[in-house]
Design a protein around this nucleic acid. Structure first.
Lengths: 205, 205
DNA sequence: CAGATACGGTACAGTATCGTACATTTCAAG
DNA sequence: CTTGAAATGTACGATACTGTACCGTATCTG
């Protein structure tokens, strides 16, 4: 790894980044349907041919964008489940999870995937696997550990994890997706704390 | 109510229904952006002018569609919380709620609203108020009753209701939205049952 | 320096979009 | 039967979209 890049390759990579940066902003803001290659080209300047040299079609450009933003957002979806207190771990985990979902990129990515899933089934599939599914599996593994130790008593850790995260999303996530209204971290923390409280009373010890 | 309809009014109303039926199918299947007035006109037959006489613009037609489908779907979101056993009531309620969300119209409506919320903020607002918000308020009222009776012990019934419904949705709803995969009622029932079980252990008595 | 490669700028094809115009025809009411 | 509203059929504007063609310029490599 770390292959030396020739001048042309560096130049090409730089243009590619420039295109992706501009197109990402536009696509996430306007959505796939309303964003146009002409708009990308207008903000990018230069020739339309270079744009189509880097990305042979609008779909290809969209897929590249989603792939990049996914990596950026979904990385924050499997936060540290440290070895501290169980309650603290769940609280921090829930807060990080919800914060990632409510970030501008998180919301835009969610909208884009829900909107275009029927036309990009493969993309939707990998999004689900690497995003929500991965997050719940991560938490489920933690639940299994805690179950072995005896800190937790749940039937099916996998389903429990999915439902814990669902409860954390609550109505807040959908409200944010629909209205672009901001939620303070106070509200997030309080909501998460109540989920954790109820969950531990139901499954703790 | 029950105003006598003249012949012209009946005729007009019938055409309006015909347009709405065709357009609803198309818009829910293709989404607002990909569906076109020309497609509606092609399937409808007749003149384009009549189409535009009933609905002055594509946006107006979309709003009428969403309003109708909302009424149809969201009616099933506040199912009966009968006066029977608490556990049974929650199970039946959760199953009805999730079934409505996973119905073809429920999924299509959800996709449409998430997709177009930025461009139809007013519509998105009423959708949220009459849909998810109303459902959680309905359940919260039930929780308050049960709290008074002493069957339930929750801090904030409203938040508890939102989180209960969020847990019921779990990952199933998103998976259905993204992949159009069907879920059997067996899976739904089992998932709901586990939520109810955990919830009642945490907040019961 | 010579040749290859990427980039710039503009024009264009071909199609699709929303919405309108206009002359004609069906249909219900008085 | 007369009158007026609703529906028809089809042709258009005007614009926007994706993707291509052509030709000149700049930048890196050998």
């Amino acid at each position: 790894m770390g292959m030396a890049l020739s001048g042309h390759e560096r130049r090409q990579a730089k243009k590619r980044e420039e295109i992706l940066a501009i197109a990402t902003e536009l696509f996430l803001k306007e959505g796939y349907g309303r964003a146009s290659m002409d708009q990308v080209h207008a903000r990018l300047g230069g020739s339309k041919r270079t744009l189509y040299n880097h990305f042979p079609s609008k779909e290809a450009l969209f897929e590249a964008i989603v792939s990049r933003v996914s990596d950026r957002v979904l990385a924050a979806l499997q936060p540290s489940l440290g070895d501290s207190d169980l309650q603290d771990a769940l609280n921090r985990m829930g807060k990080d999870y919800l914060s990632a979902l409510l970030s501008p990129d998180g919301l835009a990515l969610y909208r884009a995937m829900v909107s275009e899933a029927p036309h990009f089934p493969e993309l939707a599939r990998t999004f689900f696997e690497n995003g929500p599914s991965r997050a719940s599996h991560h938490l489920a593994a933690f639940f299994r550990e805690q179950k072995v130790i005896g800190n937790l008593d749940v039937d099916d850790p996998q389903i429990a994890a999915e439902q814990f995260l669902g409860a954390v999303r609550g109505d807040i996530h959908l409200a944010a997706v629909l209205s672009a209204k901001k939620f303070t971290s106070k509200v997030i923390e309080k909501s998460v704390a109540q989920v954790v409280g109820l969950f531990l009373r139901g499954a703790g010890h």
